[in-house]
């Protein structure tokens, strides 16, 4: 796919566990187009999170190539604007309120001006947390924290959102609401979404599903 936002070829990753070499990924090929929503499913230990870390540029593959929008530059500086990541464990900074957590993504890019402040407030309103902007993470529920994390992922208007089991720590109903939010925002902003999930129902709502098995897509 020549106009792929995300393309990976022959990604391999091996971990050492004591004397044992565990081949987690054995040559993964993937191409995701602009605006596409792709679900990656697989059993526990199938390498979904490892693949997502490679796709996010957080870890280096042992072999294979990765390109974001056709460019092999997947460094930290480019990640700031190209990519938004949503984690299973939210990872909010406990000292910052919801608004400042969302703004942190913008701060890392540059010192936020009033435009960024307005966007952060708009995003919090969009995820239904306008009234809780000044609340610390400790005072938010799990679902609310994940919604803050979603807003943070969208703060820099990324081309691609990678979501790693975003509903893993939430109950069924709250998890469903988060998936609604992610898919809704992806559609609104025409942002590509790669969703790693166990949940077949959530995966079914994406435009494409991929099953990771034995270190490769089945």
């Amino acid at each position: 796919m020549s106009d792929a936002i995300l393309s990976a070829r022959g990604l391999k990753k091996t971990f050492l566990s004591g004397d044992r070499r565990i081949e987690v990924l054995r040559g993964v090929d993937l191409a995701v187009g602009a605006g596409e929503t792709v679900a990656i499913r697989g059993e526990s230990g199938s390498g979904k999170s490892t693949l997502l870390n490679l796709l996010a540029g957080l870890d280096a593959p042992d072999a294979g190539t990765l390109a974001w929008d056709g460019s092999p530059d997947t460094g930290a500086a480019r990640r700031v604007t190209f990519l938004g990541i949503v984690f299973q464990s939210f990872y909010l900074i406990p000292e910052l309120d919801a608004l400042q957590n969302v703004l942190m993504a913008a701060r890392i890019r540059k010192a936020p001006a009033s435009a960024e402040m307005r966007r952060a407030r708009t995003l919090l309103a969009r995820v239904g947390l306008a009234e809780r902007a000044d609340h610390l993470p400790a005072h938010l529920s799990g679902g609310e924290r994940q919604r803050v994390a979603v807003a943070r992922a969208l703060m820099n208007s990324p081309r691609l959102i990678l979501a790693d089991e975003p509903t893993g720590n939430l109950d069924e109903q709250t998890g469903g609401a988060i998936i609604d939010l992610l898919l809704g925002l992806s559609a609104e902003t025409r942002t590509t979404l790669v969703l790693v999930t166990h949940n077949a129902a959530h995966a079914a709502r994406c435009s494409r599903q991929l099953m990771l098995h034995g270190g490769r897509f089945a």
Partner: peptide, 16 residues
Amino acid sequence: TREIGLLGALGASRRQ
């Protein structure tokens, strides 16, 4: 540690 990982994931450099 996990917040440091998050900052790296958000694009912060090691020097920062």
